[in-house]
Simulated assay, not measured.
Amino acid sequence: MARLEVTTTYLEMLSAEQIIPADPTELTLTEAIAPCPEFQRFLYTAVGGSWYWMDRLRWTYQQWLDYLTQDHIRTWVGYVQGTPAGYFELSQQPDQSAKIEYFGLLPQFIGQGHGGYLLTQALKTAWELTSKRVWVHTNSIDGPHALKNYQARGLAIYDQQRAIFDLPQSPPGPWPGSLRPNL
């Protein structure tokens, strides 16, 4: 384990007119309507395994199912040539805002323009859930382009917080030993 200072950055958008769209790519978007813990866990680990997404790794099947069957949670998956390339998960918050809970691409689809386009779609979809505010947070151990992508699409920083975390020497990857050396 290593002690690491992590900066969490909170961003928001207060109007759908603030979206700065990215150019479309060949990515197609489908809502994952049927609750499927296996698929959701795959997305979570495949996208977040390189970036220390670990808070849900210990969830049981029932915890995943309980989470996914909540009315205020919705997930969309981006596909490239029939292969899952990334996803975003939205939640409608008690204050009627919409939060991008999770967002990202599988490693082999990073750097091809899909992230900007997927985020554009995430923001447009989030604004269908609210007329008040869309928000998200990222941190300094997330993908190196995450913060820039959020800002490039029109989200503005409204807060930053720093905290010390005990983290493994390397991110967990989608499964043990799977982390590619070039990440």
Score class of each variant (00 low, 15 high):
T45M: 12
L65Q: 06
F103V: 02
F109Y: 04
Y117L: 09
P94E: 01
G104A: 01
Q40K: 08
I110V: 14
Y67M: 13
P94H: 00
G48K: 04
R56K: 09
F109W: 04
E38P: 11
E38M: 12
V136F: 02
I110L: 06
W135N: 05
L106G: 10
T30L: 09
G111S: 00
F103H: 01
L118W: 00
F39E: 08
W135F: 10
T60E: 08
E89Q: 05
Y102L: 12
R56T: 06
Y79H: 12
L129A: 07
S97P: 02
I73C: 14
T120V: 02
T83Q: 15
L43D: 01
S131P: 06
K132S: 12
F39Y: 11
H114W: 00
L119S: 05
Q112I: 09
L106T: 07
F39K: 08
R41T: 10
D55T: 12
W127S: 10
L90W: 04
G111W: 00
I33L: 15
Q62A: 12
D95C: 07
Q92G: 09
P37K: 12
L118E: 05
L65Y: 06
F109K: 01
I100F: 03
G49M: 01
F103K: 00
Q62L: 13
S97K: 02
C36H: 14
G48F: 02
A85G: 01
V47D: 08
T125M: 08
A98L: 07
F39L: 13
L118M: 06
W59P: 09
Q93T: 07
A46I: 07
Q121D: 14
G104Q: 00
K124E: 13
P35T: 06
L106Q: 12
Q63E: 14
G111K: 05
R41F: 08
W53M: 02
